[in-house]
């Protein structure tokens, strides 16, 4: 199992701190065996999103088993969609999860850590919508 590539996770947030903190949390809960990359904020460090940051994060996350992207809020989705529709030569098996950001990141990363394929990781992220906290 350790030699098999795992699905990579990309966290896209308007805030670099939010993306990085969520990556740290999800990575620790899942045991640190999954590649999680972040695209947070604009190129000049403001709140916003950057298509170039998302592209770099996507390439870094790809280990050959596919990538699941989690956007935080609406315009992150637009940025991700713009990248996926405009760019050629992106990694294969890239999926965008319609999921709550923190819960989705944790569930996706744990499923990736267990060796789940890209469909399983995407499913875990999207099922996070139904998880109850209390």
């Amino acid at each position: 199992m350790s030699d098999t590539p795992k699905v990579g996770i990309v966290l896209v947030s308007h805030s670099a701190a939010l993306a990085e903190g969520t990556a740290e949390l999800a990575g620790q809960i899942a045991g640190g065996t999954v590649t999680i990359t972040t695209a947070g904020g604009t190129e000049d460090g403001r709140i916003g999103t950057s298509i170039d940051k998302v592209e770099r994060a996507l390439r870094l996350a790809d280990g050959g088993a596919g990538v699941v992207i989690l956007p935080d809020l609406g315009s992150s989705v637009l940025t991700v969609r713009a990248l996926l529709s405009d760019s050629d030569d992106l990694p294969d098996q890239v999926n965008v999860a319609d999921a709550p950001f923190v819960e989705g990141a944790v569930a996706a990363t744990v499923t990736a850590a267990a060796g789940g394929d890209v469909k399983a990781v995407l499913g875990a992220a999207e099922e996070a919508r139904h998880a109850r906290k209390l």
Partner: peptide, 14 residues
């Protein structure tokens, strides 16, 4: 807590 919950889920999924 969160970390043991993660360890359980990773192990269970296998």
């Amino acid at each position: 807590h969160a970390r043991p919950a993660g360890a359980l889920a990773v192990a269970a999924a296998k």
